[in-house]
Amino acid sequence: MTLLKFRKATVADVVPLSELIQRTIRVSNAGDYDQKSIDMLCSIFEPGPLTGRIENEAILLCFAGANLVGTVGLKGDYLRSLFVDPAFQGQGLGKLLTARIEEEARQRAISDLMLHASLTARDFYAALGYEFLEVQSYPEGPFVLMRKQLNVRL
């Protein structure tokens, strides 16, 4: 894999971040969600709403050279918005991003990390130790509530 660089997102990143997330949703989730659900989910990640997230969450970006190829966020005790460019999926980047945000959560003394996984990502998170809690329905479609107990360092 190309040399990767990580850094926190800023408002200046909103357009490329929006493009990455929407592209990933459209490609990766097409097999599990209908077009209406995908369009609704993409609208959540338009630059306007995404700007608020950048200002209120810890959002980590991953670059391969100058290209934004992955992102993950942490809001409270929720892992949020893990997305990896479809061209980089299957190479361990999602696992790496998850490990980095879990470490951020540990540093914040978060003992149980929660997430809402897409149907597409449920097995990915299960392989990383997240346990199934329940399926929840939203206007954008069904999502899977999952949890992982973290070993918090004191």
Results as ranks from 00 to 15, higher is better:
Gly141Tyr: 09
Gly94Tyr: 10
Pro86Lys: 06
Leu145Ile: 03
Phe83Tyr: 15
Leu60Arg: 03
Leu145Gly: 07
Glu103Trp: 11
Leu82His: 08
Asn151Arg: 11
Gly129Thr: 10
Arg108Ile: 00
Lys8Tyr: 07
Tyr138Glu: 15
Arg53Gly: 13
Ala30Ile: 02
Leu150Trp: 05
Val84Phe: 01
Leu79Arg: 14
Arg23Asn: 15
Thr2Ser: 02
Met40Arg: 13
Leu50Pro: 05
Gly70His: 06
Glu140Ile: 15
Ile21Met: 14
Thr10Asp: 13
Glu140Pro: 02
Lys75Trp: 10
Cys62Gln: 05
Lys5Gln: 06
Val69Lys: 04
Gln22Phe: 11
Asp34Arg: 11
Gln149Glu: 10
Leu119Cys: 12
Leu60Ala: 00
Ser137Leu: 09
Ile25Thr: 06
Asp77Ala: 04
Arg100Tyr: 02
Phe83Glu: 05
Val27Lys: 11
Tyr33His: 12
Leu145Met: 11
Val144Asn: 05
Phe45Asn: 12
Ser18Arg: 08
Glu104Val: 04
Leu133Asp: 09
Leu17Gln: 07
Phe83Pro: 03
Thr98Gln: 11
Asp13Tyr: 08
Thr2Ala: 01
Glu140Arg: 09
Ser118Cys: 13
Gly70Gln: 06
Arg100Phe: 01
Arg106Leu: 00
Leu4Asn: 10
Leu79Asn: 08
Thr71Ser: 15
Leu74Thr: 03
Leu4Cys: 04
Gln149Lys: 12
Leu4Ser: 08
Ala58Asp: 05
Ile21Gly: 14
Gly73Ser: 11
Asn56Cys: 00
Phe124Ala: 01
Val152Tyr: 09
Lys36Tyr: 07
Leu3Ser: 12
Met146Ser: 01
Thr71Met: 14
Ile38Val: 00
Ala117Asp: 02
Ile21Phe: 08
Arg147Gly: 02
Arg80Leu: 00
Leu145Asp: 07
Val144Ala: 00
Arg147Glu: 05
Thr120Lys: 14
Met40Asp: 05
Ala126Met: 08
Arg153Ile: 02
Ser37Glu: 15
Ser43Thr: 06
Asp34Pro: 11
Ala105Cys: 03
Leu115Val: 00
Leu97Gln: 10
Phe88Met: 14
Asp32Arg: 01
Glu131Gly: 06
Leu20His: 06
Ser43Glu: 13
Leu61Met: 04
Ala99Asn: 11
Ile38Asn: 01
Val14Phe: 10
Ala99Lys: 14
Met40Cys: 00
Gly48Glu: 11
Ala58His: 14
Asp34Asn: 14
Pro16His: 04
Leu133Asn: 09
Ile101Leu: 11
Arg147Ser: 02
Ser111Trp: 03
Ile54Gly: 13
Glu19His: 02
Gly92Ala: 04
Leu113Met: 10
Phe6Ala: 08
Gln136Pro: 04
